[in-house]
Lab assay of single mutants.
Amino acid sequence: MSGIALSRLAQERKAWRKDHPFGFVAVPTKNPDGTMNLMNWECAIPGKKGTPWEGGLFKLRMLFKDDYPSSPPKCKFEPPLFHPNVYPSGTVCLSILEEDKDWRPAITIKQILLGIQELLNEPNIQDPAQAEAYTIYCQNRVEYEKRVRAQAKKFAPS
């Protein structure tokens, strides 16, 4: 494992614990031996107030490669969400998460999670990743928002 990646992720964890947006979660997972795995984080993004996503808490896994922060983490909703920019596998399609697009090593975990929260309610229809959600979003916004509200209710924190 890269010392650069681990040191950056340790800084990220410290900064997150000191200050993070209300309702968001970002925690490194534990290895079988109980030690912390900084390369694999369990996160959760709350649906934004005043949107059909409100009330939901959407679980996301963030996986970092050894060359982080040169390369972005892979962000994957578990379980996958109904959304035009979420692949059926759950992987998020967002330009700041793509090395050859808008990724920059200075982007923080907090910025990534806030960017994904923004994307939930403002899909990028130029870059669809899920045919069904994309089609319904474009053709029947009322039905799309109904499905999103049902999903938010399903993923409401207990």
Rank of each mutant, 00 (worst) to 15 (best):
M39R: 08
P28I: 02
I125C: 11
V92C: 08
G23D: 01
G55A: 10
L113W: 04
Q151T: 04
F64S: 00
L6K: 12
P21W: 04
A26E: 02
N40R: 09
C138V: 08
Q111S: 15
E118C: 10
I4Q: 11
M39K: 07
L63M: 14
P72V: 05
L120Y: 07
K74P: 08
R149I: 13
P28D: 05
E54R: 06
T35C: 02
P46A: 09
G55W: 09
E42M: 07
G115A: 06
P84S: 01
V148R: 02
L57K: 09
F155R: 04
D19C: 04
G90H: 01
A129D: 04
F22V: 04
M1R: 01
K110F: 04
P28H: 07
A5V: 13
D66A: 11
I109T: 06
D33R: 01
P52G: 14
P69F: 04
A106Q: 05
S95H: 00
G90Q: 04
P123L: 01
D127V: 00
K154I: 08
V142S: 14
W103Y: 15
I96W: 03
L38W: 08
S2E: 11
S71L: 06
G3A: 04
V142Y: 14
N31P: 07
V92M: 01
G115N: 01
P21S: 07
G56C: 00
S71Q: 12
Q11S: 11
N37G: 12
I116H: 09
K74H: 15
K59N: 12
I45V: 15
Y144Q: 02
I4C: 12
S158V: 11
K49W: 08
K110E: 07
T29F: 15
E42S: 11
D19T: 15
P72N: 13
Y87H: 05
P128T: 08
I4K: 06
H83A: 03
V86Y: 05
M36Y: 07
T135S: 11
S89H: 15
K74T: 15
N140P: 10
G90D: 05
A15S: 13
P123E: 00
I96N: 02
P80T: 13
Y134T: 05
E145A: 12
S70P: 05
P72D: 05
Q111D: 13
I116F: 07
G34C: 08
P72W: 03
L97I: 15
P84A: 12
D19F: 12
P72S: 10
L38I: 10
I112M: 15
R13H: 04
F155A: 07
R147I: 08
V148I: 15
N31Q: 10
I116T: 13
P32M: 14
G50P: 01
M39G: 09
R141A: 10
L113I: 12
F58V: 08
G23I: 03
P128V: 00
Q130N: 13
Y144S: 00
A44D: 07
D66H: 12
W103N: 01
W103K: 01
D33Y: 03
D100Y: 14
D100S: 15
P69Q: 01
E98Q: 06
T135E: 11
A133S: 11
K59E: 11
I116W: 02
M36P: 02
E98I: 15
V142C: 13
L57H: 15
L97C: 15
A129C: 04
F58M: 06
K153G: 02
S89G: 14
G3K: 10
W41L: 03
M36C: 07
D19P: 05
K76H: 15
H83M: 02
D67C: 12
P88L: 14
T51N: 02
I112H: 12
P28Y: 00
H83G: 03
G115W: 00
R141P: 13
T29D: 10
F58H: 03
E54F: 13
P157M: 07
R13W: 01
P32K: 15
V86A: 08
S89K: 11
G3P: 09
I107A: 13
I4Y: 09
G115R: 00
A106W: 02
K101V: 13
E78Q: 12
P46M: 05
P21N: 06
F22T: 01
Y144A: 00
L120P: 02
L97A: 11
E12H: 05
R61L: 11
C43V: 15
P105N: 01
Q130L: 12
P72E: 09
N31W: 10
I125V: 11
D127I: 00
Q117G: 12
F77H: 01
E98S: 15
Q126H: 10
T108L: 15
L119A: 00
Q117K: 08
K146G: 12
M1D: 08
E42C: 09
G90E: 00
T35V: 03
E98G: 15
I116Q: 06
V92P: 08
N37L: 10
P157G: 10
R8K: 00
K153P: 06
H83T: 14
E42K: 12
F24Y: 12
K146V: 13
S95P: 01
P69W: 06
F22W: 04
F155I: 08
A44S: 08
Q117E: 09
G90Y: 12
P84T: 10
M36V: 06
D67W: 06
A156W: 09
D100G: 13
Q117S: 11
G90I: 02
E12N: 06
E98A: 15
R141K: 11
R149E: 09
A129N: 00
V86I: 08
S70L: 14
K76M: 13
K14V: 09
T51D: 02
D100H: 14
I125A: 07
M62V: 12
P21K: 06
N40M: 12
F58I: 05
D33F: 01
G47M: 07
K76D: 15
L81E: 00
K76N: 15
Y137S: 03
L9S: 00
T51V: 01
G115S: 01
C43F: 06
L63H: 12
F77A: 00
T135K: 06
N85C: 04
F82D: 02
K59W: 14
W103R: 00
L113M: 11
F24K: 01
Y134E: 06
S158Q: 12
I109C: 06
R149K: 12
I45N: 04
C75T: 08
Q151K: 05
K101E: 13
K101P: 08
P46L: 07
E99L: 00
R149M: 09
T35E: 00
M36K: 07
N124R: 03
Q130F: 07
Y137T: 09
G47I: 05
L113R: 01
V148S: 03
P88I: 15
G56M: 07
P123Q: 00
N40E: 15
T51E: 02
S158I: 12
M36E: 05
S7C: 10
A106P: 05
P28Q: 04
E132A: 10
K49S: 04
K30H: 09
V148N: 00
F58Y: 13
G56L: 02
E42D: 12
N85M: 10
D102T: 06
P123N: 01
T35A: 07
S158R: 11
V86R: 02
N85K: 03
M36A: 03
A152T: 07
P28N: 06
K30E: 07
A26H: 00
P157H: 10
D100K: 12
F24C: 08
G115I: 00
Y134W: 07
I45R: 06
W103C: 00
S2G: 15
E54D: 06
V148A: 09
L113E: 02
C93S: 00
L57A: 06
E78A: 11
S89E: 14
L97E: 05
P105H: 01
P79K: 14
P105A: 14
T135V: 15
P73K: 02
E78P: 03
N31L: 14
N37Y: 14
D19Q: 01
Y134M: 09
N40Y: 09
A10F: 11
N31C: 11
D127H: 03
L63W: 01
G56S: 02
G90L: 02
G23A: 06
V148F: 00
A10V: 11
I96C: 03
E98Y: 15
G47V: 00
R8V: 13
A133T: 05
F155T: 05
N124M: 04
K74M: 15
A106V: 12
W16I: 03
R141T: 12
P52K: 11
A10K: 15
N31F: 09
L63V: 15
P28K: 06
Q130I: 03
I125W: 10
P73E: 02
S7E: 09
M62D: 05
L120N: 00
W53R: 03
N124C: 12
F77C: 03
